[in-house]
């Protein structure tokens, strides 16, 4: 029997708010699903969107971006940049066929441990319902026959094909 699908979600947190929210959730024994792997950045503004693509291409089923509420970033303006990046990123990913539920942005202050836990739980369930992303499979199974099968008569293709 196949194992039930457990989504892998990469979560980016900022040092000053959302990481502390996750920490608070832990110390106050609020449960959230273990599907999320948190990575701490100093600020959500540090999030190069390349990280999100690397996570997705590398096997993650979803990415959660978190940071301080707008206006509360410890580096003043950076989470406005995060919001603008995220907005453009989501539109770009939609063109690649990646559902909006898979990449989300959530603001969480250091006091919002319980809320962050709820948001994580919601996201895990949404991604679970969508199923695995398996991006390397998307790249590998491109629907094209291997050249050596398509041109069996070409000895030079046979000879060079790996």
């Amino acid at each position: 029997m196949s194992e039930p699908f457990e989504p892998v979600i990469i979560g980016f947190t900022c040092n000053w708010c959302s990481y502390r929210a996750a920490d608070l959730a832990g110390t106050s024994r609020v449960k959230y699903p273990p599907n999320i792997r948190l990575i701490r950045l100093m600020c959500s503004g540090r999030l190069d969107p390349t990280f999100v693509l690397k996570a997705l291409a590398g096997g993650a089923d979803g990415v959660l971006i978190t940071g301080c509420h707008p206006g509360e970033c410890h580096y003043l303006e950076q989470n406005y940049k995060t919001l603008r990046r995220f907005t453009l990123l989501r539109r770009t990913l939609a063109q690649f066929g990646i559902e909006p539920e898979r990449v989300r942005l959530v603001w969480a202050s250091a006091a919002e441990g319980a809320r962050l836990a709820v948001e994580i739980g919601k996201m895990v369930e949404e991604v679970r319902a969508l199923g695995p992303l398996n991006w390397q499979g998307v790249i590998a199974d491109d629907g094209d026959p291997p050249i050596a099968i398509y041109h069996p008569q070409s000895e030079w293709v046979q000879g060079v094909a790996a």
Binding site: L53, F96, I98, W135, D142
Partner: peptide
């Protein structure tokens, strides 16, 4: 690019 192509399995 890191993604290389769009996903087209049923979400086309």
């Amino acid at each position: 690019s890191l993604l290389r192509r769009a996903r087209t399995d049923g979400v086309e």
